[in-house]
Design a binder for these strands. Structure first.
Lengths: 111, 111
DNA sequence: AGACTGTCTTGACGTCTGTCGAAACAGACA
DNA sequence: TGTCTGTTTCGACAGACGTCAAGACAGTCT
């Protein structure tokens, strides 16, 4: 399912099918906790981060963090992998880049 | 309130205050109808578009479209202005650009 | 094997969201 | 001034969402 990846929001109307695919990703980012989780995962130096490093960063219970992580996972924004005792999360740059491209205000279009 | 505007998600963790400001904007974009509305507004040739052109593009009642437009307005993504009989909506590129910057996957960082 | 730790799933609860119909408001035209 | 069209607000309803406590599952260590 390859939604049109490149044109910016400001260039042409987003087709309904693309909107249906992309909107859930924006929605997943639409919670302050998930936005921070996403950035913690995406900015992890080793490319991945342990849930055990994520959970204590918030005043929320483990299950709640787990729930948010699942939302991010289902939106296609992150990937999870269990390795021994801990579960590691990694960002999926592709979709992130697609969202960014969509939002990018035409770089050279005020000409 | 000027949230840190430039660093990407992938560069450093989004601070809680920034997340609190930015997440509502993502949330506003997190509905297929609003995403399409946003793109129709942002891609309007004259820079603005009449509600009367927006409403018939969806299988939804006027009040529902109005509700979504209000959400976009309250998120700071669009501006409305009444001129005579019709109301015109215009995009606010600043916030859009901020969101794009946040999402942009480090352009030259695979070096 | 048994106990322990870390993570996820389930079930529940109150709140928010998307939608509509009906009504209110703003401006134009006769 | 009165009526008509376009837009928003109000009230209501079903469904989704964020959160937690309790329980289930996975893996490790003794």
């Amino acid at each position: 399912m390859d939604v049109s990846c490149c044109p910016s929001l400001t260039e042409q109307r987003v087709p309904a099918e693309a909107a249906a695919v992309l909107a859930p990703a924006f929605k997943a980012l639409g919670d302050p906790v998930r936005l921070q989780l996403m950035s913690m995962i995406a900015s992890a130096e080793s490319g991945e981060i342990c849930v055990c490093d994520l959970t204590p960063a918030f005043d929320l219970t483990g299950p709640t963090i787990s729930h948010h992580l699942r939302t991010l996972r289902e939106a296609g924004l992150v990937d999870a992998e269990r390795r021994g005792t801990w579960v590691y999360y990694r960002a999926r740059p592709a979709l992130l880049g697609q969202l960014a491209a969509l939002l990018t205000v035409a770089p050279e279009v005020n000409a």
